[in-house]
């Protein structure tokens, strides 16, 4: 839902970032309000994934300029875990496997670290078990997955469902889904996007990073942004995604170049 007067959850201003001395983000601007769903599309190498990792605080990226304000706080000064506890959630493109730590223990530690941050009492194993079983339904996950190692031997679809399960538990203010749809068959895609839709409310916000318009058939964005060369070069309504699907990205780039010329 477009929320013109709503609370600004995330404000990104002229953000620049590099990895190993190579600039990737080159002046990115974005405003996300509560209740909104934003899709960021763009060709490979445009900086989409970098942007999501920078928001989550990945240590490989160096911020060289600009600002990111999350709920009135300077996000860039926060450690990754502080960001997570304050309500940022990144669903990974490639969720990691951690054999030796059971999924349920991992989920409980994560959940409790957030509760502790909020000044709430931590849940014990029994109460947490009840809670997590309710949330399993969001992504139609088999309870057997709880006792297995984190993502250990999970299929691609199961890993992505596990990400959404974590999101359901952590109830983030801002969810960033980094190519959550890639590698999913249509059934898994429906389950995952069904989960995301259930979790999206008027109080939180979602950023979908994707290659494919297909995801947007299931999760309807309020805005579609096109990233190119480390910046958002155009923004439009959800129909823009369809146009990108049929015409590719090149025309957007040409229009942008045209616009820059006219301005110059």
């Amino acid at each position: 839902m477009i929320n013109a007067t709503g609370e600004v959850v995330l404000l990104v201003q002229n953000l620049t970032a590099e990895v190993d001395g190579t600039p990737i983000l080159k002046g990115l601007n974005l405003e996300v309000k509560a209740g909104e769903i934003h899709a960021i599309m763009g060709p490979n190498g445009s900086g989409k994934s970098t942007f999501s990792k920078v928001l989550a605080g990945h240590p490989d990226y160096t911020i060289t300029g600009g600002a990111v304000i999350f709920q009135g706080q300077n996000l860039l000064e926060m450690e990754p875990q502080e960001r997570a506890r304050s309500g940022i959630f990144l669903a990974f493109q490639y969720p990691l496997e951690i054999p030796g730590v059971s999924n349920i223990d991992f989920l409980r530690v994560a959940y409790n670290s957030k509760r502790k941050h909020a000044g709430l009492e931590e849940l014990d194993a029994f109460d947490f078990d009840d809670l997590v079983r309710q949330k399993l339904d969001v992504v139609k996950m088999n309870p057997d997955f709880l006792s297995r190692g984190v993502n250990e031997g999970f299929s691609g679809g199961e890993k992505k469902r596990n990400e959404i399960l974590q999101m359901a538990l952590l109830e983030p203010k801002l969810a960033i889904l980094d190519e959550t749809d890639s590698g999913l068959d249509i059934d898994a895609l429906k389950i995952v996007s069904g989960g995301v839709n259930q979790l999206a409310t008027a109080k939180n916000a979602t950023i979908l990073i994707t290659h494919y318009q297909r995801l947007l058939d299931y999760i309807e964005p309020d805005f579609v942004h096109v990233m190119e060369g480390g910046r958002i070069i155009t923004t439009g309504p959800k129909e823009l995604a369809l146009e990108l699907e049929s015409r590719g990205y090149l025309w957007v780039r040409e229009e942008e170049e045209e616009r820059v010329k006219v301005q110059g």
């Binding site: 875990q81 997570a84 506890r85 990144l90 990974f92 951690i98 530690v109 670290s113 941050h117």
Partner: peptide, 8 residues
């Protein structure tokens, strides 16, 4: 980083 991003 994965674990940190979940609040640990």
């Amino acid at each position: 980083f994965y674990l940190q991003s979940r609040g640990l």
